[in-house]
Write a protein that binds this DNA or RNA. Sequence first.
DNA 1: GATACTGGTTACTTCAACGGAACCGATCTC
DNA 2: GAGATCGGTTCCGTTGAAGTAACCAGTATC
Lengths: 130, 130
Amino acid sequence: MPTSLLEENDGTDASAKDVLSPDCPSRIVFGRIGERWTMFVILALEPGPMRFTALKARVGVITPKVLTETLRALEGDGLVSRRAFVESPPRVEYALTPLGRSLLEPIAAMRAWAEAHVPEVLESRDRALS
Amino acid sequence: MPTSLLEENDGTDASAKDVLSPDCPSRIVFGRIGERWTMFVILALEPGPMRFTALKARVGVITPKVLTETLRALEGDGLVSRRAFVESPPRVEYALTPLGRSLLEPIAAMRAWAEAHVPEVLESRDRALS
DNA sequence: GATACTGGTTACTTCAACGGAACCGATCTC
DNA sequence: GAGATCGGTTCCGTTGAAGTAACCAGTATC
């Protein structure tokens, strides 16, 4: 059983460390999707496999360095696959794995909430400034 | 209609800026929940109103400074409310607003995915290291 | 009269993400 | 032989979030 997100116990030091444990599933997931470019790359790959340059164009203003970093991280997490063809000029195709594709579902739920409620959030932010 | 998360157009410069627009709803939401402590605070408040010190104890190792910053940000977004009672010693109660409470739903979806699939992610990370 | 509790604030430091620009080897085109 | 394409890599600098530690006023308790 994974460690819990919050302490439900008596607050001894031993378990207090679990709160921030890198093994906490929610922390892992929210940490990854909180990174600036993760969402863009995953959503850009939704239609199907794509080459590096096409991906870069689709995401928009991302630099090649950051795109590479993001892709390596997602590959390491098993969310994205990388296929390099030995040709010249080189060709590399990135695609969502089934695991990565399954993540699209909760993302969609979060996006739906965002579309529905962000106007309220922005309104609240405006009020907070005044 | 809000700006889209990705470019579906011809890639002219004018619309390219919208991709990273601070008005993009998904960016706003994922930006906020990606921040390190947001999730802990929101989930800690799920049972009901809570005082600063109790909240701090429940979240675990968070410093008062960071907790204050997080609460102020959530308050500014209209997700958390703050009620100060003029007493001594001072008493302050924080609670989820209805808007904040509505966010618990997509968060639960994401947590469910996390609980179900993070073992695969960790396994993939282990493989990537070898 | 000293101590602790409450809900913070302030100043300083550290660290990782992110961005900019230049560069690479191999191949194909002009 | 000059330039473009592809998929990156390398170096350097900036920035903002987070952590550490000390401190505060007012009251109640010992």
